[in-house]
Amino acid sequence: MNNTFKAIAVGAICVATFAATSNAADWGSIKGRIVVDGTPAKPAPLVVTKDQFCIDKMPVNNSIVVGKDNALENVFVYLRVPAGQKIDINPEYASKEAEPVTLDNNGCEFHPHAVLARIGQTLDIKNSDPVGHNTNVNVLSFNQVIPSNSDAKVKVSTGGALPTEIACNIHPFMKAWILVQDHPYTATTGEDGTFEIKDIPAGKHEFQFWHEAGGYLKNVKLKGGATDKKGRAELNIEAGKTLDLGDIKVPASALK
Protein backbone atom coordinates (compact mmCIF):
# COMPACT_ATOMS: atom_id res chain seq x y z
CA MET A 1 0.00 0.00 0.00
CA ASN A 2 2.63 2.41 1.01
CA ASN A 3 5.86 1.14 -0.39
CA THR A 4 7.99 4.12 0.46
CA PHE A 5 6.94 3.97 4.04
CA LYS A 6 7.56 0.26 4.16
CA ALA A 7 10.93 0.55 2.57
CA ILE A 8 12.01 3.16 5.06
CA ALA A 9 10.74 1.13 7.97
CA VAL A 10 12.40 -2.04 6.77
CA GLY A 11 15.55 -0.12 6.07
CA ALA A 12 15.55 1.28 9.57
CA ILE A 13 15.21 -2.16 11.05
CA CYS A 14 17.91 -3.58 8.86
CA VAL A 15 20.28 -0.81 9.77
CA ALA A 16 19.54 -1.47 13.41
CA THR A 17 20.22 -5.17 13.02
CA PHE A 18 23.31 -4.50 11.07
CA ALA A 19 24.64 -2.06 13.62
CA ALA A 20 24.12 -4.61 16.34
CA THR A 21 25.88 -7.46 14.63
CA SER A 22 28.66 -6.00 12.58
CA ASN A 23 30.84 -3.03 13.22
CA ALA A 24 33.07 -2.78 10.19
CA ALA A 25 31.59 -1.98 6.84
CA ASP A 26 33.86 -4.41 5.13
CA TRP A 27 32.21 -5.59 2.00
CA GLY A 28 33.50 -7.10 -1.20
CA SER A 29 32.11 -8.39 -4.45
CA ILE A 30 32.50 -11.32 -6.76
CA LYS A 31 32.01 -11.58 -10.49
CA GLY A 32 32.80 -13.82 -13.39
CA ARG A 33 31.59 -15.27 -16.62
CA ILE A 34 30.53 -18.85 -17.20
CA VAL A 35 31.23 -20.42 -20.58
CA VAL A 36 30.75 -23.87 -21.99
CA ASP A 37 33.80 -25.82 -22.98
CA GLY A 38 32.74 -27.78 -26.02
CA THR A 39 29.36 -28.15 -27.63
CA PRO A 40 26.60 -29.21 -25.28
CA ALA A 41 23.85 -31.53 -26.41
CA LYS A 42 20.93 -29.71 -28.01
CA PRO A 43 17.95 -29.76 -25.67
CA ALA A 44 15.05 -31.72 -27.13
CA PRO A 45 12.59 -29.44 -28.92
CA LEU A 46 9.41 -28.71 -27.00
CA VAL A 47 6.24 -30.51 -27.96
CA VAL A 48 3.69 -27.71 -28.16
CA THR A 49 0.24 -28.99 -28.96
CA LYS A 50 -1.95 -26.73 -26.93
CA ASP A 51 -3.24 -23.28 -27.79
CA GLN A 52 -2.69 -21.91 -31.24
CA PHE A 53 -1.19 -18.85 -29.61
CA CYS A 54 1.59 -20.91 -28.03
CA ILE A 55 2.20 -22.88 -31.21
CA ASP A 56 2.59 -19.62 -33.12
CA LYS A 57 4.96 -18.23 -30.52
CA MET A 58 7.24 -21.24 -30.95
CA PRO A 59 8.68 -21.32 -27.43
CA VAL A 60 12.05 -23.03 -27.15
CA ASN A 61 13.53 -25.42 -24.65
CA ASN A 62 15.58 -23.22 -22.38
CA SER A 63 17.18 -25.95 -20.33
CA ILE A 64 20.56 -25.12 -21.87
CA VAL A 65 20.98 -21.64 -23.31
CA VAL A 66 24.37 -20.90 -24.81
CA GLY A 67 24.93 -17.38 -26.08
CA LYS A 68 27.71 -15.58 -27.87
CA ASP A 69 31.23 -16.84 -27.21
CA ASN A 70 29.82 -19.96 -25.54
CA ALA A 71 28.37 -17.92 -22.67
CA LEU A 72 26.14 -20.10 -20.50
CA GLU A 73 22.94 -18.43 -19.38
CA ASN A 74 20.79 -19.26 -16.34
CA VAL A 75 23.50 -20.60 -14.06
CA PHE A 76 22.69 -20.01 -10.41
CA VAL A 77 25.67 -18.71 -8.49
CA TYR A 78 25.07 -18.00 -4.85
CA LEU A 79 26.58 -17.80 -1.46
CA ARG A 80 25.79 -20.85 0.60
CA VAL A 81 24.93 -20.25 4.22
CA PRO A 82 25.16 -23.54 6.11
CA ALA A 83 22.01 -24.67 7.91
CA GLY A 84 21.42 -22.88 11.16
CA GLN A 85 23.72 -19.94 10.40
CA LYS A 86 23.07 -16.34 9.48
CA ILE A 87 24.96 -13.87 7.36
CA ASP A 88 25.18 -10.10 7.67
CA ILE A 89 23.10 -8.29 5.13
CA ASN A 90 24.44 -5.11 3.64
CA PRO A 91 22.02 -2.20 4.18
CA GLU A 92 22.21 -1.58 0.43
CA TYR A 93 19.88 -4.53 0.02
CA ALA A 94 17.18 -3.25 2.33
CA SER A 95 15.34 -1.33 -0.32
CA LYS A 96 15.48 -4.26 -2.71
CA GLU A 97 13.80 -6.57 -0.25
CA ALA A 98 10.63 -4.56 -0.46
CA GLU A 99 10.57 -4.80 -4.25
CA PRO A 100 8.52 -7.59 -5.70
CA VAL A 101 10.13 -10.24 -7.87
CA THR A 102 8.40 -10.40 -11.20
CA LEU A 103 7.76 -13.59 -13.08
CA ASP A 104 6.02 -13.09 -16.38
CA ASN A 105 4.16 -15.63 -18.47
CA ASN A 106 4.96 -14.22 -21.86
CA GLY A 107 4.74 -15.97 -25.20
CA CYS A 108 4.16 -19.26 -23.39
CA GLU A 109 7.53 -18.95 -21.71
CA PHE A 110 8.45 -17.86 -18.22
CA HIS A 111 10.46 -14.66 -18.00
CA PRO A 112 12.94 -14.79 -16.45
CA HIS A 113 13.77 -18.46 -16.82
CA ALA A 114 15.89 -18.41 -13.68
CA VAL A 115 14.25 -16.58 -10.80
CA LEU A 116 15.84 -15.33 -7.60
CA ALA A 117 13.80 -14.52 -4.54
CA ARG A 118 14.47 -13.73 -0.93
CA ILE A 119 12.29 -14.95 1.88
CA GLY A 120 9.93 -12.11 2.72
CA GLN A 121 9.80 -10.78 -0.81
CA THR A 122 6.65 -10.85 -2.87
CA LEU A 123 6.57 -12.88 -6.05
CA ASP A 124 4.42 -11.07 -8.57
CA ILE A 125 3.32 -13.56 -11.19
CA LYS A 126 2.03 -11.90 -14.35
CA ASN A 127 0.39 -13.24 -17.42
CA SER A 128 0.97 -11.05 -20.46
CA ASP A 129 -0.45 -13.63 -22.84
CA PRO A 130 -3.96 -13.65 -24.27
CA VAL A 131 -4.30 -17.25 -23.04
CA GLY A 132 -4.74 -18.38 -19.47
CA HIS A 133 -1.88 -19.98 -17.57
CA ASN A 134 -1.41 -21.49 -14.19
CA THR A 135 1.79 -21.17 -12.25
CA ASN A 136 2.85 -24.04 -10.06
CA VAL A 137 5.66 -23.08 -7.70
CA ASN A 138 6.27 -26.27 -5.83
CA VAL A 139 8.62 -24.83 -3.25
CA LEU A 140 5.90 -22.41 -2.15
CA SER A 141 3.10 -25.00 -2.44
CA PHE A 142 1.55 -22.46 -4.76
CA ASN A 143 -0.48 -23.41 -7.80
CA GLN A 144 -2.94 -20.84 -9.02
CA VAL A 145 -4.73 -19.95 -12.20
CA ILE A 146 -3.42 -16.71 -13.74
CA PRO A 147 -5.90 -15.39 -16.28
CA SER A 148 -4.83 -13.44 -19.30
CA ASN A 149 -3.45 -9.97 -18.54
CA SER A 150 -3.67 -10.27 -14.81
CA ASP A 151 -1.35 -11.17 -11.99
CA ALA A 152 -1.21 -12.98 -8.68
CA LYS A 153 1.01 -12.08 -5.77
CA VAL A 154 2.41 -14.58 -3.35
CA LYS A 155 4.60 -13.95 -0.36
CA VAL A 156 7.81 -15.96 -0.50
CA SER A 157 7.97 -17.73 2.82
CA THR A 158 9.69 -21.06 2.25
CA GLY A 159 12.96 -21.76 0.55
CA GLY A 160 15.39 -24.54 -0.09
CA ALA A 161 19.05 -25.15 -0.55
CA LEU A 162 18.72 -25.67 -4.30
CA PRO A 163 16.69 -24.14 -7.12
CA THR A 164 13.36 -25.84 -7.74
CA GLU A 165 11.06 -26.05 -10.71
CA ILE A 166 8.25 -23.71 -11.69
CA ALA A 167 5.72 -25.19 -14.09
CA CYS A 168 2.53 -24.40 -15.91
CA ASN A 169 0.24 -27.41 -15.95
CA ILE A 170 -1.94 -26.10 -18.72
CA HIS A 171 1.17 -25.89 -20.89
CA PRO A 172 3.47 -28.55 -19.42
CA PHE A 173 6.31 -27.57 -21.77
CA MET A 174 6.71 -24.31 -19.83
CA LYS A 175 9.45 -24.52 -17.22
CA ALA A 176 11.42 -22.13 -15.07
CA TRP A 177 13.54 -22.42 -11.95
CA ILE A 178 13.44 -20.49 -8.73
CA LEU A 179 15.99 -20.17 -5.97
CA VAL A 180 14.69 -18.95 -2.63
CA GLN A 181 17.25 -17.98 0.00
CA ASP A 182 16.95 -15.86 3.09
CA HIS A 183 19.81 -13.63 1.99
CA PRO A 184 20.35 -11.56 -1.15
CA TYR A 185 23.74 -12.93 -2.18
CA THR A 186 22.48 -14.77 -5.22
CA ALA A 187 22.92 -14.30 -8.93
CA THR A 188 22.08 -15.89 -12.23
CA THR A 189 24.19 -15.59 -15.32
CA GLY A 190 22.80 -13.37 -18.02
CA GLU A 191 22.86 -13.62 -21.79
CA ASP A 192 26.59 -12.88 -21.79
CA GLY A 193 27.25 -15.55 -19.14
CA THR A 194 28.29 -13.01 -16.53
CA PHE A 195 27.22 -12.77 -12.95
CA GLU A 196 28.04 -10.41 -10.13
CA ILE A 197 27.20 -10.41 -6.43
CA LYS A 198 27.93 -7.20 -4.61
CA ASP A 199 28.38 -6.14 -1.00
CA ILE A 200 29.24 -9.50 0.48
CA PRO A 201 30.71 -9.41 3.99
CA ALA A 202 34.46 -9.81 3.64
CA GLY A 203 35.84 -13.20 4.53
CA LYS A 204 35.76 -16.75 3.30
CA HIS A 205 32.47 -17.99 1.97
CA GLU A 206 31.26 -21.04 0.18
CA PHE A 207 29.74 -20.39 -3.23
CA GLN A 208 27.40 -22.75 -4.99
CA PHE A 209 27.32 -23.21 -8.77
CA TRP A 210 24.21 -24.89 -10.09
CA HIS A 211 22.58 -25.28 -13.47
CA GLU A 212 19.27 -26.96 -14.30
CA ALA A 213 20.75 -29.32 -16.86
CA GLY A 214 24.00 -29.95 -15.05
CA GLY A 215 22.82 -29.90 -11.45
CA TYR A 216 25.81 -29.28 -9.22
CA LEU A 217 28.53 -27.90 -11.50
CA LYS A 218 31.24 -30.07 -10.06
CA ASN A 219 34.97 -30.16 -10.72
CA VAL A 220 34.84 -26.84 -12.51
CA LYS A 221 38.19 -25.07 -12.42
CA LEU A 222 38.22 -21.71 -10.72
CA LYS A 223 41.13 -19.45 -9.94
CA GLY A 224 43.20 -21.38 -7.43
CA GLY A 225 41.13 -24.53 -7.27
CA ALA A 226 37.97 -26.17 -8.46
CA THR A 227 34.42 -26.72 -7.31
CA ASP A 228 33.88 -29.84 -5.27
CA LYS A 229 31.52 -32.76 -5.89
CA LYS A 230 28.59 -30.61 -4.87
CA GLY A 231 29.54 -27.72 -7.13
CA ARG A 232 30.85 -25.58 -4.29
CA ALA A 233 34.00 -23.64 -3.78
CA GLU A 234 35.29 -21.67 -0.84
CA LEU A 235 36.37 -18.24 -1.98
CA ASN A 236 37.85 -15.35 -0.12
CA ILE A 237 36.08 -12.02 -0.46
CA GLU A 238 38.35 -9.12 0.40
CA ALA A 239 37.03 -5.88 1.77
CA GLY A 240 36.55 -3.21 -0.83
CA LYS A 241 37.65 -5.47 -3.66
CA THR A 242 35.96 -7.41 -6.38
CA LEU A 243 37.00 -10.99 -6.82
CA ASP A 244 37.01 -11.51 -10.56
CA LEU A 245 36.86 -15.19 -11.40
CA GLY A 246 37.27 -14.44 -15.10
CA ASP A 247 36.00 -17.09 -17.51
CA ILE A 248 34.82 -20.23 -15.78
CA LYS A 249 34.76 -23.17 -18.15
CA VAL A 250 32.06 -25.78 -17.69
CA PRO A 251 32.70 -28.91 -19.75
CA ALA A 252 29.86 -29.65 -22.14
CA SER A 253 29.62 -33.18 -20.74
CA ALA A 254 28.51 -31.75 -17.40
CA LEU A 255 25.31 -30.41 -18.98
CA LYS A 256 23.07 -33.41 -19.28
Binding site: M1, F5, K6, A9, V10, I13, G120
Partner: peptide, 8 residues
Protein backbone atom coordinates in the same frame (compact mmCIF):
# COMPACT_ATOMS: atom_id res chain seq x y z
CA UNK B 1 6.02 -4.36 16.42
CA UNK B 2 8.08 -3.67 13.31
CA UNK B 3 6.34 -2.16 10.32
CA UNK B 4 6.88 -5.29 8.25
CA UNK B 5 4.75 -7.29 10.67
CA UNK B 6 1.79 -5.58 9.01
CA UNK B 7 0.49 -6.36 5.60
CA UNK B 8 -0.45 -3.05 4.12
Amino acid sequence: VPAKAFRL
